[in-house]
Computed example of a mutant assay.
Amino acid sequence: MPQSDDQRLVDLAARIEQDDPHFARSLSSGRPAKPREYRYTRAWWVLGIGVVLLFIGLVMPHGLLIATGLVLSGIGVQLFDPYPPRRGSRYRNSAR
């Protein structure tokens, strides 16, 4: 017996509320906000701090600062991916 469209919409709303409550509340208030996948504030901060540490490590030849700057820059760039791979799957686009 197929589900009604109303039940599907209720299920979808419940999943959105569970996944990103801020986005769901903003939709119900009539002032939509960006979903979590498109909020990059934390990624910009991590990337900026990493680049600053990398630059300081290059100006003052200090290997630990260079390594820290490279690691933080890599983490910051990784945070820009809106759809990170799910745990448990080996490939991002695996066909099932």
Rank of each mutant, 00 (worst) to 15 (best):
P2D: 14
A43P: 00
Q18L: 12
L12A: 11
I16K: 04
L47N: 00
L58G: 01
A13D: 10
Y38M: 13
E17G: 12
Y40L: 07
H22A: 15
W44Q: 05
P2W: 12
P32K: 08
D6R: 12
S29C: 14
G50D: 00
P35M: 08
D11C: 02
V71S: 01
G63S: 12
L70S: 06
W44A: 05
Q18E: 13
A24P: 06
I49E: 06
I66N: 04
G30I: 12
L58V: 00
R8F: 04
R36M: 13
Q18W: 11
P21L: 06
L54I: 00
H62W: 05
H22D: 15
H62Q: 04
A24H: 14
P32A: 14
I56Q: 04
D19L: 13
A33G: 12
H22S: 15
L53C: 05
R39D: 06
R42N: 05
T68I: 07
V52L: 08
S4I: 03
W44E: 06
G30S: 14
L64P: 00
L27S: 05
L47P: 01
L47V: 03
A67I: 07
R8G: 00
V51Y: 00
L64V: 08
I16Q: 08
P61A: 07
S29V: 13
L64N: 04
Q3E: 11
W45Q: 00
E17V: 03
T41I: 09
L58Q: 06
S4R: 03
I66Q: 09
F23L: 12
A13K: 05
V71Y: 03
G50I: 00
V51L: 04
G30W: 14
L9M: 10
D11N: 05
V52H: 02
A14W: 10
Q7N: 10
I56P: 00
F23P: 04
R39H: 07
A14Y: 11
H62Y: 04
Y38L: 13
G57C: 02
A67V: 06
S26C: 15
T68K: 02
F55M: 06
R39L: 09
